[in-house]
Amino acid sequence: MTTDATLASHLQELRRGTVVVASLTVLRTPGYGYSLLETLSESGFEVEANTLYPLLRRLESQGLLTSSWNTDEARPRKFYTTTAQGNAIADALRTEWARLDEAITDLSTTPVKE
């Protein structure tokens, strides 16, 4: 495996799960699939449509999101909103993220013990 491929696989490993936190956070204001995809990629989350759309349904079946069809516009769209439970989970995940960030920073700044 080349260095690039190794790096790519580790990055993928590291990013797995961040999309869930990001989606639950963004959808505190209701949004539909494509809009969320746009928002996420603008904010620097590399996520594929074929990962995101099924993920939204999975989060809905877990009770972290609710959905409703908006047929006011010409194109009917399914809007997702984060539930209270989803918010609580997102909070817990963000806390964990912050803790990990702190821990990694500590590790990389602590001088190596002799």
């Binding site: 539909y32 699939g33 494509y34 995809l37 449509a49 009917p76 769209r77 399914k78």
Partner: peptide, 10 residues
């Protein structure tokens, strides 16, 4: 419905 809407949006 959802998949079609998403494809058309894109």
């Amino acid at each position: 419905r959802e998949l079609r809407a998403s494809i058309e949006d894109a």
